[in-house]
Design a protein around this nucleic acid. Sequence first.
DNA 1: CGCCCTATTGAATATAATCAACCGCCGTGG
DNA 2: CCACGGCGGTTGATTATATTCAATAGGGCG
Lengths: 250, 250
Amino acid sequence: MANSIEQNNCSVCSQRTQCVGAAAGSQTTSHRIRIERHTSLYEAGSAVGDQIYHIRSGSFKVVRGPSTPDSDADAHVIGFALAPDFIGLDALDQLEYANSVVALEDSVVCSISWNRHAFEGRRRPVMRAHLHALLAREMRREQRAALMLRNTQAEQRMADLLLTLSERQATYGYQPEEFRLPMSRCDIASYLGVTAECVSRLLLQFKQRALFELCRRDVKLLDMSALRTMAFGHEPPPQLQQDQAMLAAA
Amino acid sequence: MANSIEQNNCSVCSQRTQCVGAAAGSQTTSHRIRIERHTSLYEAGSAVGDQIYHIRSGSFKVVRGPSTPDSDADAHVIGFALAPDFIGLDALDQLEYANSVVALEDSVVCSISWNRHAFEGRRRPVMRAHLHALLAREMRREQRAALMLRNTQAEQRMADLLLTLSERQATYGYQPEEFRLPMSRCDIASYLGVTAECVSRLLLQFKQRALFELCRRDVKLLDMSALRTMAFGHEPPPQLQQDQAMLAAA
DNA sequence: CGCCCTATTGAATATAATCAACCGCCGTGG
DNA sequence: CCACGGCGGTTGATTATATTCAATAGGGCG
């Protein structure tokens, strides 16, 4: 399913300050993989290797179980992964992947052999810290998502999702107000834990309240502070950039 | 808050087959800590040390944020931890704990210095595998919980909780049908993402349908297969014992 | 052009929240 | 010993929120 692979020198990578691979040393190489839209990086049930994946560009959905059991449309979206996220951390100890990862658009990932990097060589302690930080960060992100699911209405979760996407857009150098939703309404619904109809209605409401403009999948946020107020009880910060900072510093 | 501490020789520990500490070597020691009911093992905001905790007996709730901000009762329960769970894995890379852990009953935990065990000594690779297995397993557990929150009604989540508690009871040598709920209705409600009233009604329904007997906090499951059918769509297995087996085998 | 798939809209229904009252247990103090 | 008050838990009535079922709209693509 992965469409093309090429070698990659981490020391000249544009994302080396954020990446685990680059920290391992200047001569490190990794494999760069190009994934076409709607194809999977890996499928639930396939063998887990020695690698984790770093998204260089594009976006993915993480789906519980096989991505297309044909008839069975209850493939639940348990998360989205956008550049520069890492994928495959939850499978470190497993023989088979429990989830499938499907590209929402044409994307590029780096495959990093974590075992070699994290536990050999001079920079081993640094790499360990990196890996543990990634694991713990992922765990806290899951916790936060679960918290949202428990204690908020669909409206707030939708607002949160929009803000998260916006934030991600911003860290990538683009404007935070304007972006394109890489996922379908159905994916959003599955992720938020509501029906597609409900997503539709929520988006309509948002539009009517002039929180944003929306044409198909193109979004332009108009009132981000209102969205923030809606998502959290009017506080500014989920400490995400803090985690990013830690990662870069390590 | 931790009430008493004593030294502990892991090689004669009754749980050495399941514990990270014991695998490190025969002369390993850890600290055994006694925690009184309603006191916290640690509080959100307190400093993270070099240890993770292994529950030897008793039970805890994991609460997002400080456990008692006095007036503010919206302390959300993000999970329960029962023997022989591990606690503190999500803080490996952090300076401060993000969650608080509160004992639901008088409990005993072992404090294990993971850094020393996992990265020094002859059994280092084994320890690493242990630690990574714990981290990844915890992550998958979170994912499973989130899946339940997204795609199920309160009824199913309640059934799932009861079965989980039952299963835990069984792994500990007791009968799986009869046990005592260590947590309050309010804690259950917070964990399931519903109100306390709703929990009450659900439990009443279960009783009326003769799924179980319930007196205050004492439970006796009468129809476990019905509960299973309710929780998952009539399939048997969340693969949890598999994880346990892997852990013991490593 | 016409089909298929995604998305939207509407009406009726189900599920859980909210608000409010009440019960029963337990510890305290008269 | 019993009365009191507090807390955890239960129950009821009403309302809000999201689901379900069904029908429709619109874009992409052969």
